[in-house]
Amino acid sequence: MTKARIDARFAALKTEGRAAFVAYVMAGDPDAATALKILKGLPAAGADIIELGFPFSDPMAEGPPIQRAAQRALAKGMTLSGTLELARAFREGDQDTPIIMMGYTNPLVTWGYDAFARDAAAAGIDGIIVVDLPPEEADPLADALDANQMSLIRLATPTTDDARLPVVINRTSGFVYYVSVAGVTGVKEADAATVAPHVARVRKASGLPVAVGFGIKTPERAGAIAEVADAVVVGSALVDEVAEAVEMNEDVTSRVLSKVASLAKAVRLARQGLTTV
């Protein structure tokens, strides 16, 4: 499985002629049990790929929504091993939906790259995005992931010029994540017309599917991006649902999954010339 699971999912969606919807969930937010319920409900709600955040105390590329999600998760005792437990529990009922972890270097350094890659693969993780591990520093982790057939998914950004793009793509597999805005997660809004040529450029250079994320909050925006990208990632808008549900004392799982459903629907309809609203 692992890398193969990501490739199979993109191949299937290509036949369907649509983009993937990628839903980001912070492990342990608002607590481990609820996060697991959300994870288990994601495929039925329309998530094609799951991005599973593992919390870090100092997430330097995140805006306030994901910063706070990480703090909620840490306050409830979530750990890297706890994150793998969630993945393992999810895998018991779903063998097909790829899970990509996303987070920061230090918890991985603490675990040890080789041990982490082995344990993550065993838990059913397919790939990982490490925000503060650029290609210049990533070889030791890439070696460990290769040995376990896992994907290292790199970020290309608005500052990635043609000279740098090959560096970013080298040793990337599964897909490339295009960061649609220069900035932190969940603040600026992504614009489909601006993003389109970059997606095409990255796709051509890498020969891989290109996911777009950072700054996609609404079904309208998700639909617009889905017309030009191979996958649409929504994170901050989903963890905001967690925060609001907790605050309003509402059911967190149903609130998050209903948001996922509306975003996923917009992504599914995007290339049929239909709109959701």
């Binding site: 650029p134 210049e136 950004t157 500052t159 970013v168 900035g183």
Partner: peptide, 20 residues
Amino acid sequence: ASGRFGDYGGRYVPETLMPL
């Protein structure tokens, strides 16, 4: 050249900042 003092140092920053 890679900014290392032995094992220490390096450039562990988000990709957006690497060109800068």
